[in-house]
Design a protein around this nucleic acid. Sequence first.
DNA 1: CGTAACTTGAACAGTTCTGTTCGGGTTACA
DNA 2: TGTAACCCGAACAGAACTGTTCAAGTTACG
Lengths: 199, 199
Amino acid sequence: MTEPTIARPRADARRNIARILDAAVEVLGEDPTASVGAIAEAAGVGRVTLYGHFASREVLVEAALQHAIDRGEEQLSQVDLSGDPRAALERLIHSSWQLVLQSQSLLIAAQDSLSPERILAVHDKPVRRVSELVRRGQDDGVFRSDLPVTWLVGVLHNVIHGAANEINAGRLTAPDAPRAISATILAAYTPPGRPTPAG
Amino acid sequence: MTEPTIARPRADARRNIARILDAAVEVLGEDPTASVGAIAEAAGVGRVTLYGHFASREVLVEAALQHAIDRGEEQLSQVDLSGDPRAALERLIHSSWQLVLQSQSLLIAAQDSLSPERILAVHDKPVRRVSELVRRGQDDGVFRSDLPVTWLVGVLHNVIHGAANEINAGRLTAPDAPRAISATILAAYTPPGRPTPAG
DNA sequence: CGTAACTTGAACAGTTCTGTTCGGGTTACA
DNA sequence: TGTAACCCGAACAGAACTGTTCAAGTTACG
């Protein structure tokens, strides 16, 4: 029985795949309706080549989302989540913010062409990271427990994305965003009847 | 000099226009990418007839958004905004919630085919209503003043739309939504160092 | 160096939408 | 009751996109 050789792509093929993924993240991050052709062009690659590696637009979008999240995970995994949950959350917000600002409409593209289940599956790791921090804060009595963790995480998600929209609308400047987000979230997470953190 | 007769549409034409607008609000409220043909069908009207009243998809979408907001304004204008700003805000949230739940993706459709300026212009009245209430709360010292009114209004906007998404994702039930939104917003609006309202 | 893997533009088929035109029928309304 | 306003289906032109095929090049790599 011959050893089953694992079919490993050629070097130029792997390079092109990487270029395509980078381009997809970048282009879809700005225009969620960007065509496959536009992505191929941005990657400096023929459209046929792209289809050779990604069978359909759907597959490409999912791979791009996965790629963006994987890259983000590298940074997020380095954030120190120990100590006071409120301070830890502020650090996490600060790191997440840049990532969201880049990939902005990539999520919209995903929502257009991917099933909710797949999107959720790809987001599993980052969501879990935030969820555990929030839960720890609840256990410590620092974060409110009268609302479910999923809701609190969702609020964070929406406020961050909302901040990106505010910047696009010119009603907020990028440097001001992290402070506004943190101040809003920390107050929103405060247990009923307890004082909010003073800036 | 003959009196310049104001060209008033015939009765059936006005009826069809109304039907089209209602259908547009309903259909686009569920699928932001719905085609003009689908809207015409839902209105029980020929596609040609629709184009006779609305020159392009863009015009139709804007008219539909305007229509939805105008209908909503009727209800919102009846909300009592006097007294404690926090209680008033809760009443306003409660009334706004139903409206948003219906028109959900109509806004997405608008964002796809309308310029941000036009969207903002159409939203002028409801935004102003909330803004003034928030500002009054700031003057009374009940709402925080360390963040701009536009930001606070934006947070409310995003949390409400986020709640709609949570419901779609099955992580929140419709009856629970108003309570979660109010609790979140009232805490988020609390001035730094002051206790959040106890549920 | 030779071959298999890979890339490429051009061209094609198929779909879906927008917006227009035409001709004949119906309806409001004065 | 007459006429202008209106409605409608069918059919058309045009654009944009997806995904495939082909034939000819280029490149990695054993």
